[in-house]
Design a binder for these strands. Structure first.
Lengths: 150, 150
DNA sequence: GCCATGTAGATGATGTGTCATCTACTGGTG
DNA sequence: CACCAGTAGATGACACATCATCTACATGGC
């Protein structure tokens, strides 16, 4: 195996800065959410997707597709959330293998209570420091990378 | 509490794209590293920092500062790495509380074997899809955000 | 020298993510 | 209808992350 094309100086700096930013940022967001509302980022994402449909319920495979999570990660996550009363599993009449995941009243309360503080934090830690151009450039960059990931 | 300033459409799209990119990207990197060399990204980072000093050893608090990790995360990580023979803990003469973390021969072999494939993957999944301007913009963005995180 | 306070680091409990594997049902083909 | 490949989802084992807490040593003030 011949030696790879290493990263050049610009790329190294960018990569290190990116890794550091993403580590510290998600740690902060997780801590804020956990401390202020007892939810993890994972809980938050699941609940957001459930409340997006006004029925408040989804098949696990739909959630999986939307969140782009591993199947078993989702399954474990739902088990934990069910144990805490945030969601409920219901039978699925159409498909004997399947299930519906339904958000509970408690789940709704939790996400409603958590959202404002979370959004404020995302703003305060991230968007408030960026120009409009940086924001659109970021979206472009992320979608460019995502396109190549499939 | 009055309602927060929500994210506008641009910000929402950027934020979602960013979250999705970072989730999928780190998953891919972790999988590649794990599959090809039996290391996790965490192992990799620790070993890189140890090999950066030619003595191949660091105090845990130095590692912690460099990696910006939680103290107990590092401690657990080092315990696991020690169990697998990648690092060794040594007494610290200067400070009776302290310790040195020393990379082992096996640790050196592991990082040497892992690095080329990892760098190729970072390139292939990330930098190859980006222009030079996007790379410098990313570094700028990440440092801007990091500056506000302290 | 003694004590208070601070710092280095480890540990146990618990929540989270991944992999491998399993069960049960679906839906198409003979 | 019998079979079989595929899909929906759960589970157990294990690695990883976080929080709270603990021990032991360091250091400065008296």
């Amino acid at each position: 195996m011949n030696s790879p094309r290493w990263l050049d100086a610009d790329e190294q700096r960018a990569w290190r800065a990116y890794l550091r930013m993403q580590g510290r940022l998600t740690a902060r967001l997780n801590r804020q959410l956990q401390a202020d509302s007892g939810l993890s980022l994972a809980d938050y994402d699941v609940l957001v997707h459930l409340t997006d449909r006004e029925e408040g319920r989804l098949r696990p495979y739909e959630l999986q597709r939307d969140l782009q999570w591993e199947q078993s990660r989702l399954s474990h996550q739902l088990t934990r959330m069910q144990r805490r009363g945030l969601v409920r599993r219901e039978e699925c009449a159409d498909d004997g293998r399947g299930a519906y995941i339904v958000i509970t009243e408690e789940g709704r309360r939790a996400i409603t209570a958590a959202a404002p503080g979370h959004v404020e934090t995302v703003r305060g830690l991230f968007f408030d420091g960026l120009t409009r151009d940086q924001v659109t450039a970021l979206e472009r960059l992320a979608t460019d990378v995502l396109d190549r990931l499939d």
